[in-house]
Design a protein around this nucleic acid. Structure first.
Lengths: 234, 234, 234, 234
DNA sequence: CATGAATGAGCTTTCATTCAT
DNA sequence: GATGAATGAAAGCTCATTCAT
């Protein structure tokens, strides 16, 4: 059913439609009229519907194809020698690819809802999770983030990049976001902790669950007070 | 253009339209039909057009009004006692406000392009910049970020929050993003630097501009090699 | 919600749409394109949709209005002096109205499914049932038919009329169908019974239920044989 | 046009198309998409067009073939021993066949307009007419109906059956319709005549033509009055 | 001024028919 | 001959905008 068409012209048309759709969706997201895509591909609107039952299906197809390459890359990096480099490098690479692609951006944000894409979504989460775990194992990434945090961060980074001023240079915002993931090294722990790493910011003891509102930063009033004094004297 | 209507009922209608539009745009973004807004406001579609020449103009008006309050808050915080708390608290507050507001999110991302909003945008940048500077002055924020970085980060944080899983708790992603801004404390500087703070990660010397591709992390091959060895032995 | 529009032009347009739709549906049934109706009414397609949310809704509106008049007539006849004449006359009148009206024909056949029309359908069944009961009471209609039989018969009669040759004259087929309903008079009962009146065709005793296949005509083998002989000798 | 294809596979395809089309048309009438038929037949749409120039032509072919079998049956019954049984039984049989066959129903109603089918239509009328005449000859059918009446009645019966409630049992409406055709027996003629048998209901003299409105039942005011009195005293 | 009816282009989708393979 | 891909003209429906009332 999802097999590629057999006839040469059909295959050619399918490719051209995908290409045109990719460009159009990248530029304007789902908003672009399907007729425009058909015209760009040099076919009738009906032909588009022969290949893809729905505009949404076309969108998913375009995006899935793109994401598959992204997932492939993740899987290829799973056995990289330097897990930290691999992880951060991969994030940067993904963001670069999606940065100006409205469609891809949306799709990565949306958890790839379609049936067709579900497998891809799982593969993505799996491979990215593995990259993350390995990077955490070597201390390149703080241990309190999980794969969903990373996925969200990727989306955020794309959006940030899209908004960046020309003088910022590409990747500036992503690099910044990556910093949020870095483990503060050994020596830091002797100094004051201020990062939201899910331990008391003063004594490091585990925090009580705070199911609602702003997450707690201190294990109790004593530490909060201590931090307060420290800040005052800083 | 900026003249407000004179008659009492006209002014009342204008308010009701803005209110209805705010709710509608917040929920569904620009997609919501104008007729729905008019109906919610209890007026005819024509009345909406008497007050706002275009649907887009209405959108901008709604959003500008909201952002003005956000800017007000920033200005109010400029003289807060604790610049660090003020800065991070403000970020969190903004994100919380915008998190589930489709319209606000879009608008903050878009640099407030309209003529009407330009003043607001400037005020925003000014006040936020002041908050940032003061936080940097007390060492609460790393010195290599500027106000545009922060604005982008806000947008990214909103998007991340919107994607968060229910179990993540509100603010989780924003807190994470804030960590990217925190200054690593004195003691850290003796340890290995891994953050993208715009100096060589080994020797701290300024980096050559890397207009494209992944930003450089080392000032040259020597430092890169040094870092490599260090990692090996870790 | 189903209130008529207040403005004069809207009311006028609504009327024109209903009129145009009536003609169009009468001629071609539901098949007629809505744009044609709009054009005939001298309005845009959008205007049609302002008055009727759906093509089907328009169809129902047209047809319901027509059927209401038909029901009104039935209710008016309930107290007629001559129940037999009233009943048969009414059938004929209904068929004449619907004969060349594709839409009405379909609608009467279909049990008026819409919520809007449900009340009308009930009223119709009630009034027609009353006409029938009174006609049966005076012996003008055989007692073994019920109101649903009559409704079906009406539909059948319309279809038959529609197919009639020009030389048949209007009402010919309906008159024929009506004959199926007439009670065979007193004297007949002494003669051989051949009609499907739900008693043994020979002795008149009640028939065993025949839940499937062709309904039984005789109470048992004996009578069947008797009838067979009789026919032979006829 | 009537030349059958020569090659074995072509002939086989033709058969499969007809079969698939029969099923599809029976279920949904002309509405079914041609592609569906082609798929059901296991051929391409183009192949359908090789055999039938038009969708409508296919429809006609399907229906004609079916009707031919119906006509065959009629011709086979022409020499049945019991003309009455043969006639009524045949009607029932036809209705049963067509009852849930949308296509057949439509076709029987429409006088088989195509050139191809014209011969079939004539044969049908001829055979049915013969059945009718013989049934009339033995007094099983009233003499004032002709073959076109019967054809119409068949169509009407189908429609009625289609509308019947489940509890009515199959054939109920057809049986009712057949009653309209039965001759009221000798003895009846002494009693009051109420059936529309094309003579004055009182004196039996021929009726004046009534081209419009309800057909006359009496030859003149005198007889009408007489009937009225009779009814009063009944 | 306010209203909401009217407009009409535009959207997605379907399908009979043609035609390259 | 057979295939099924391509076509393109509808269809039903939506909605930003205009304008008669």
């Amino acid at each position: 059913m999802s097999g590629r068409p057999q006839r040469a012209d059909a295959r050619r048309n399918r490719e051209r439609i995908l290409e045109a759709a990719f460009e159009a969706f990248a530029a304007d997201g789902r908003l672009v009229p399907l007729d425009d895509i058909a015209r760009r591909a040099g076919v009738g609107a009906g032909t588009v519907y022969r290949h893809f039952p729905t505009k949404e299906a076309l969108f998913q197809a375009v995006v899935t194809e793109r994401i598959e390459r992204i997932v492939d890359e993740a899987e290829a990096l799973v056995h990289a020698e330097e897990p930290g480099e691999a992880f951060y490098g991969y994030l940067m690479w993904v963001v670069e690819r999606a940065m100006f692609n409205h469609a891809l951006c949306d799709a990565l944000a949306a958890d790839l809802g379609t049936l067709d894409a579900r497998g891809t979504d799982e593969r993505f989460t799996l491979a990215l999770g593995e990259l993350l775990r390995r990077a955490q194992a070597v201390g390149a990434v703080r241990p309190d983030v999980d794969v969903q945090d990373v996925r969200s961060l990727m989306v955020g980074a794309m959006v940030m990049e899209r908004r960046r001023r020309p003088e910022g240079g590409p990747g500036r915002m992503t690099a910044l976001a990556c910093d949020a993931l870095r483990l503060v090294t050994k020596d830091d722990e002797t100094g004051p902790r201020e990062r939201n790493e899910r331990g008391c910011a003063v004594c490091g003891k585990p925090l009580a669950a705070a199911p609602t509102g702003r997450p707690a930063r201190f294990c109790g009033p004593a530490c909060r007070q201590k931090a307060h004094r420290r800040r005052k004297t800083a």
